[in-house]
């Protein structure tokens, strides 16, 4: 008998709360900076996605970690939700196991890729600032 649903559902809710906070931060800095005046996170002015502003944030370990945590929370929340939707379609037991395994692999793979990208961006930004 599987007893994993309580922890999975609990972390689903916790991941939702993490997304609420970090996505709020992302929206504030990247999309609502003109309204909320998060200018401190875009010191080069202009657009928050200009290279100078992106590099400024990428050098800060807080942002690197927040990208990774947001990525993990988003992947877990989304893929667990997708799994529940697919399971409501009534797949047989074998297919359920296959769906779970496939989504787990997809989640781990995307998390690894995203983590690598976050650290790479930080490395590039640090290298550019030392030149």
């Amino acid at each position: 008998m599987s007893m994993r649903d309580t922890p999975l559902w609990t972390w689903h809710v916790i991941a939702g709360l993490i997304i609420l906070v970090l996505l709020g931060l992302h929206m504030g800095i990247m999309h609502l900076s003109g309204v909320l005046h998060f200018d401190a996170m875009s010191p080069a002015g202009d657009s928050p996605v200009d290279w100078a502003n992106v590099a400024y944030r990428a050098k800060m370990i807080f942002f690197t970690l927040s990208y990774i945590v947001l990525l993990g929370a988003g992947l877990f929340h989304g893929l667990y939700g997708l799994k529940n939707i697919l399971f409501e379609l009534g797949p047989p037991a074998g297919l359920r196991s296959a769906i779970s395994a496939l989504l787990l692999l997809l989640g781990v793979g995307l998390f690894a890729l995203g983590t690598w990208a976050a650290f790479t961006a930080r490395t590039v930004a640090l290298a550019a600032s030392s030149m």
């Binding site: 008998m1 599987s2 007893m3 649903d5 309580t6 999975l8 559902w9 529940n84 399971f87 409501e88």
Partner: peptide
């Protein structure tokens, strides 16, 4: 009861 409810028979599919 928790041992049963913590699995697929539990309340987790309720939306």
């Amino acid at each position: 009861r928790k041992a049963i409810l913590a699995g697929e028979a539990g309340p987790w599919r309720c939306h």
